[in-house]
Amino acid sequence: MHMHKFEKVWLIFGVAALLVFLTVLGVSAFYLGNQPPSCLATIDPEKVDTTAPFNEPGLKKVEGKDWDYELVFVAQAFAYTPGEVEVPLGAKVKVIATTKDVIHGFEVAGTNINMMVEPGYISEHVTVFDKPGEYLILCNEYCGTGHHMMTSKIKVVE
């Protein structure tokens, strides 16, 4: 099968670029720990209110862990609990969320905190809140009539 010399040059360039992308992503994910949210823990979606840590939603200081705080959210149609929360600037926080009914999104607009929340599963993401301001939390997966009214707020304060 004949291939033009320029096509070979192009494909070598293209494949090399893809390899560079994959290497950057791979090192960041597996060496630096920047994996997409992929928590493997499960929960009974009908017992969310009585299962720790979801029995006490909100921000909680923790000791002896790789992060300083845990920020727990419960999603249900069409609201998040808590509806507003303050996080100290610079805090390393594990955001933990689950749902009591259908699939929801959990997006903190303008940040990398963006995860699917699915019945039966717990979703987690660890990050450092290093920029002050008010951040809108919204549902970005269709969940019913009130989907676009489903919000919360994070204030990162000094």
Partner: peptide, 27 residues
């Protein structure tokens, strides 16, 4: 053709690098 595909290739790289830096910049 070679010039054209390289234009495409550079566009792809710039787009990717742009969003990657957005990813790095955000928490």
């Amino acid at each position: 053709t070679l010039a054209s595909v390289f234009f495409v290739g550079i566009f792809i790289v710039l787009t990717w690098v742009g969003v990657y830096f957005l990813y790095l910049d955000r928490f």
